[in-house]
Structure formats: C-alpha cells, structure tokens
Nucleic acid binder design. Sequence first.
DNA 1: CCAGTTCTGGACTTGCGGGTCCAATTTCCC
DNA 2: GGGAAATTGGACCCGCAAGTCCAGAACTGG
Lengths: 207, 207
Amino acid sequence: MLTKKGAATKARIIAGAAQLVAVKGAAETCLDGIRAATGTSKSQLFHYFPEGKTQLLLAVAEDCSQRVLEQQRPLLDGLDSWEAWEQWQELILRLNAPGDGDGYCTLTALSGQSPQTVPGVRELLADHLERWHAALTKGLTAMRADGLLREDADVDELATAVLAAVQGGAMMGRITGSTAPLRTALTVTVDHLRTWAPPPPPPPAAR
Amino acid sequence: MLTKKGAATKARIIAGAAQLVAVKGAAETCLDGIRAATGTSKSQLFHYFPEGKTQLLLAVAEDCSQRVLEQQRPLLDGLDSWEAWEQWQELILRLNAPGDGDGYCTLTALSGQSPQTVPGVRELLADHLERWHAALTKGLTAMRADGLLREDADVDELATAVLAAVQGGAMMGRITGSTAPLRTALTVTVDHLRTWAPPPPPPPAAR
DNA sequence: CCAGTTCTGGACTTGCGGGTCCAATTTCCC
DNA sequence: GGGAAATTGGACCCGCAAGTCCAGAACTGG
C-alpha cells in the first residue's frame, strides 16, 4: 500500500539522499540533513524506510545503479560497431563530467564506504558490475561474430579491461578533479580493442 | 621534541589506526577503538595528534601512501624491460591479495571516504597518483629510448592507462572478492603496451 | 640525581545523530 | 460523505564518540 503522494515522497527522499551522499559521503550524511533537503520529517523517513538509514542507503544504491545503467542506454546495448563504441566513450565522458553527479558520484561514494557498513551494498555493486560487464561482452561478442574482431579475441577479458579502465579512470578523475585520466584510460583501452581487429585482407591478388 | 618511546607510540597508533580503517572504514573507526587496539589512552591520541581524528587520519594516509609505493620498490623504479613489467605485475597481484591489506585497503578506504571529510587527503592522494604515474612513465620512456617501444608511443598516456587498470581492477576485486578482475585488467593493459613494441625486423634476406 | 619536559591513565563533558512515539491530518475507496 | 488506512509533524530519548582536563609516572639532559 502506497498512495501516489506517498510514492512521490519516497522518491523525493531517495533523490535527496542520493544528492547528499554524492556530495558529503554516506557517513557524513545524517538523517536530519536528508530531512531538511527533502522537506520531510523524521517520521516520514522511518515510515518509508522502517529499518532506518541502512535501508535508505541501500535504496539509494539501487536507484543509482539503475540510473547509471539506464543513462547509458540505448548505446550500452548496441556496442556492436566501432562507431557505437566511439559514441559510448563520449557518453561516458559526458556522464562523468564535473556536473550534477546524477548517480555516478553517489554510487562511487557508496562503493568506497558502505560495503562494510550497509549489508547488501557489496552484493548490489557486484551485480551492478556484472550487468555492465555483460553488456560490454555482448557487444564484443557480436562484433566478433561479425568479423570485426579476430576469432581468438577473449571478449570476456577485454570487457573486464574496459570496465576497469572506466572505474579506475573515473576514480583518478575524482581525485585530481579532471576528466583527463578517464578520457585517456578509455581511449587507450578502446584502442586496444582495435588491435584485435582482424588483419586487413591481403591485397586481392596475393596468395 | 619526541623521545624514542614517544615516537614508537606514535607509530603504533598510526599502524593500529590504519589496520582498523582498512577493515571498518574511516567513519566507522572511532578513537576508542584505536585506543583499545593500540593499548593507548585517549590523552595519548590527542598528545600526538592535537587536532584530533582528522590529523590522525591524514597521518595514516601519508603513512600508507609511503608504504604502497615502498612495497613496489625496487621494481617500480626499474620498469625498463618486459621482464621487469612481468615481475611488477605479479608483485601487484600479490600485494592486492586478500591478506593483511598492508596499506592497500587502507588507502582505498580513505580515498573513497575522507576526501570530503578530511582536508588534505585529496591533495595527498593526487600526489600519490602523480608519483606512481611518474615512475611508470619513467620506465616506459627508458624502454622507448632502448628501442623496446615505438618512437611514437605516448608513454604518458600509456602510464595513465596502466594506473587506471590497477585502480579499477583493484576496486572491482574488492567488490567481487576476487583478484581475477585485477589480474585480467593488468594483463590486458600490459599486453597493450606490447602492441607498441616496434615491428620485428624483416627477415634478414627479404626486402 | 634532580629539575623540566615528555608521556600516560582515565574520568568527565558535550553535542550530535539515529531511532521512537503519538497525535493530527490527509488521502483513498466505497 | 464517511471511515479506514496512509501520511505527516515534531518533540523526545538515548547512546556513542569526539574532545577536555589534570594528576601522576617516566624519561631526558646536565
């Protein structure tokens, strides 16, 4: 049971909490801050999240995980050509720009902190990575089937490397306050994918 | 002024705090826990770190940054051959094994949390990455000079990519509880370095 | 060995933040 | 329109953890 108004309030709480977590970190975000930021009262917080802060943080993590993947669609599901990869790269860079931090910063903030604190977050993040990885793998597999990658390319490993580059690059970017590391890491890694393109066909006459 | 005994106590506090931070996270590590773990009293904590917890955490971060780099030496300073890179890879994997977390986990724990909380940590981490990056770049530059890499290789970018792979791989490993992602990311990225090796000299007779 | 400093133990204060409670109000559905 | 259920406000409690304080022990240099 949850009326339209109730659902709206709940969503508002999650959004506000995500914002605060992204800015201040999970531990430094107190319920009273969330209350103030969302124009709610303490009782509402516990009405919608009876188990308190941990449940709320978990909901925030779920929401952000969803959002992060959603923001990459439909590109993420169609990484089956070099053009698609290029567009995706640009999208990733744009999403990691200093701005709002619509989920990105929030998730990473949680990933650094809550795994030890909030039960379930670790599993959630693992699942998140898994889904992301699966999408990359799917695209690479399609490319291999299309002859854009050599038959002996290990798409699984390549996908892992790309994902690691994104995570690592983003983390370095957060620390240095620049998008350059992410841009470089992504570019280099996707360039690496290209080294797995089959050799150009020998000149028609030869062999 | 700091007697021998005093210095020992201070070091003990830092080490104990680092341990706790690695396990529970910075926010969840309370002074009383540190006190208990190091067999000290509250007054000692504030005697050696008058500014309290933030100062202590910063000291921990400094110590770990030092240690992380130190653990990689002397290999880190001699990455000027493919053999050296291979050994370094293995060392990194070993250091990121589940075990003790001698600095590794601590630093990453801090990097995810304290930048917003403890002033100075962000700068410290940026410096840490910078030094690490410089060492990688130095090795690659030497290799390029030795003809192990093509002249047009961008050693700076390559170093960034390697570093991102390490960071991202380690992060994914922490979440999934496996060293596989790091191993894969590192392997793939170092393999990429190899694609920048100059083409093998054409067979002596030919051309 | 003896001042002066450094080091140590532990009790105490204080504020903050998570969580509880209940009474009032609104919304939903019939 | 009326009653049950969902929603809201805000005062209150409580424990924990940061930080303070001071008295006493241990160490240092001359």
